[in-house]
């Protein structure tokens, strides 16, 4: 199953060092305490473990696939005017 990237889970962008991971983790945990948001808390903890705990990393990371957040809006397809098309082409509805 494709999970969210652990770096993204912790909000780590371009400029950071390995030491910053801990800070980012603390910040995220403060924002998502377990009693309020248990799901997010568990995902953040998993992300932190993957990045900092070799046991988790060796167990999970080499097998896990991560997804990266992409926020693109897909254009909606123009709606076809069905009746316009049906007006133009005759189709015998019942077999003759």
């Amino acid at each position: 199953m494709i999970k969210k990237s652990p770096y993204e889970m912790l909000g780590l962008k371009d400029n950071f060092t390995f030491e910053d991971i801990k800070k980012a983790y603390r910040q995220k945990i403060r924002e998502n305490p377990p009693e309020q948001n248990p799901q997010a808390f568990s995902e953040i903890s998993d992300a932190y473990d993957i990045l900092t705990n070799e046991e988790y990393f060796f167990k999970d990371a080499p097998k896990e696939l991560y997804a990266l957040a992409v926020d693109i809006k897909v254009d909606e397809s123009p709606k076809r005017e069905t009746s316009r098309y049906l007006k133009n082409i005759f189709e015998v509805p019942f077999q003759i």
Partner: peptide, 25 residues
């Protein structure tokens, strides 16, 4: 028929767009 050809052309463009959008979604 003439009309079917016109409709076909119009719809093909729309479907190509729709398929692309569906794939992207």
């Amino acid at each position: 028929t003439k009309n079917s050809r016109v409709v076909k052309e119009e719809l093909k463009g729309q479907f190509a767009n729709q398929n692309k959008n569906r794939a992207m979604e």
